[in-house]
Design a protein around this nucleic acid. Structure first.
Lengths: 248, 248
DNA sequence: TCAAAAGTGTTGGCCCTACACCCATGC
DNA sequence: GCATGGGTGTAGGGCCAACACTTTTGA
């Protein structure tokens, strides 16, 4: 079906189902191939990229809404979610649905609640929905141009992620269950945006006493097989309560 | 006029003026008499205390809304404001306006955007409005019972304030222009909830290089007159960009 | 044999805590 | 003289950055 038709059809349904004026946009981070990636969707016929988002049912709270939106998009449940900011500028959607009637749902003034999400890249199966042409992971330094104010939503999410690295279980949620020390270091380096010294990183991580060294190693790669670790969840959450010391 | 009458009268006006389902609640901090205080208002006839709050005009963004709400309440403009969280639980207002018609503005489901505000206590003139009996500063450890989920809004604000102490101009906005080193230290101790060593605090503050020592001292008190300082705004904001090192 | 990973050692420096001591001064 | 404030000294410890060396091992 044509984009305009779909939007018009949805409109009536949405007015009854969702809270007006309120949307949710998600910045979904995943880590793969030593790269931090973000989920973006391409709007049908608009040839424009956007952050995955949706609306808040009249019968749910905003975290449930974000969770539902992402489950539809990724197939994954129990995604780690943090709200980080409300975007409320009057002109944030500008003339985006100009060609539609004023009574259409999408043409309201929307305030958007920004969530960032951390997912295990390997657990995600992307879903392309009715109003999008594509749904893809993009490296954070190769993001396409995003519609409306989604670029600044992303920017703010990344800054928040960086600040919370020592206070939230970010490593745990972005990495697969088993991972190597170089992978963990790479993740930290990307989020912080700077190189870290290997030896010092290794010692500091072990000193935190939140990792369990497994009896396995990762075979198959070139060179020496790296050791595998996993988080000691109990100690990890205990450490997060206090926050790790800052200042890398 | 009677509380019920006022509410009913406001209702029609509000439906036209404000965005539905959305409210703003402010946790306003002030520092006075070596005590961190919070602004609370007493609801008329309800004998219940609440955080000062309001709604978002259809023609303003949320920061403008919070600013307007606080200006009406305190007479002060240019108040330092930070949004920190959206509160969206379905039962957060419970049966608070039970005795009213379902169509009344106040009986909607509200999502509330939490702001914290930092004000110079000495610059504030409190205003009691139509639907409140009182508007008072209360020490943070002597807060009265608050309506709805306002207690948890306050709790979250205080936690946020503590976390942001080294990343936002919190000292600057809570203190008068000129202040003494013991006052500054007291403020830090209260926000952090622990005693700090005087000599070390003094050296650390000076090392930051964000204070200007004035040629005046505060006469009149008992004992030795303490030196007065003010913030070097330029250096202060520069330092905040990077964030002071954590870990008191 | 080469390259990546693992593990360890060392150095100097900074900052933190804790405690202690000095001086100044208002009442 | 006493309480408060201003200012400084120091000892010990922790962590950090930077650098360097060794060992292990898969392809």
């Amino acid at each position: 079906m044509e984009f305009k038709k779909i939007i018009e059809e949805k409109s009536n349904e949405y007015w009854g189902k969702y809270l007006p004026h309120l949307s949710i946009d998600c910045v979904v981070f995943g880590f793969h191939d030593a790269t931090l990636k973000v989920l973006v969707v391409q709007m049908k016929e608009k040839n424009l990229w956007a952050l995955p988002g949706g609306y808040v049912l009249k019968t749910e709270n905003i975290k449930e809404a974000a969770s539902r939106i992402l489950q539809q998009r990724t197939g994954a449940a129990n995604i780690y979610l943090q709200q980080f900011r409300v975007f409320s500028d009057l002109n944030r959607s500008e003339g985006f649905f100009e060609e539609f009637e004023d009574t259409i749902w999408h043409k309201q003034r929307f305030l958007s609640i920004g969530f960032y999400a951390l997912v295990d890249y390997s657990q995600v199966n992307l879903v392309v929905d009715e109003i999008s042409d594509a749904c893809e992971w993009k490296p954070i330094d190769e993001l396409p141009e995003l519609m409306m104010d989604h670029r600044s939503i992303f920017d703010k999410a990344l800054i928040t992620l960086r600040k919370q690295l020592n206070h939230k279980p970010i490593g745990y949620n972005l990495l697969p269950e088993k991972f190597t020390m170089p992978e963990l270091q790479k993740l930290y380096e990307i989020i912080l945006g700077k190189k870290l010294n290997r030896g010092n990183f290794y010692r500091k991580m072990l000193r935190y006493d939140i990792l369990i060294k497994l009896d396995e190693i990762r075979k198959g790669g070139a060179h020496k097989a790296p050791d595998l670790y996993q988080f000691d969840l109990e100690k990890y959450h205990l450490a997060l309560k206090n926050g790790f010391s800052e200042g890398w």
